[in-house]
Amino acid sequence: MAAKKEKRFNPVLNLLIIILTMFTIVFTKMEIRRIAYNVLKISDQYKKRHDIYRYNMLEYAKITQPERVRNYALSRLTMTEAQKGQIIHISNDNLLVAQ
């Protein structure tokens, strides 16, 4: 009797397995698509960050250009340019007159 019941359910079980397998395949493909959209979104964000980084690097280079640093030192920090004979090099116990 149990064997007869099992024989009756086997085709249904097989069909269920087939349907589940197909759904799994479809679901997996959809999941790949979803991940792909995420990767696209992240790469877009990365590209934007990289662009901002490049822009900031160039801004930094502008701010630190020698002419700007010099003008700032002369006008805002009241520094003066080194004159001849102003800088003394020190070597061991002796003062060497230079520059």
Binding site: K84, I87, H89, S91, D93, N94, L95, L96, V97, A98, Q99
Partner: peptide, 22 residues
Amino acid sequence: SYAVRKAGLSPTIISEDNLLHL
């Protein structure tokens, strides 16, 4: 003079007149 200062080159002792003892 700027280039040698920037490169950190030590001055050369030309004569005793260049030396001052601390």
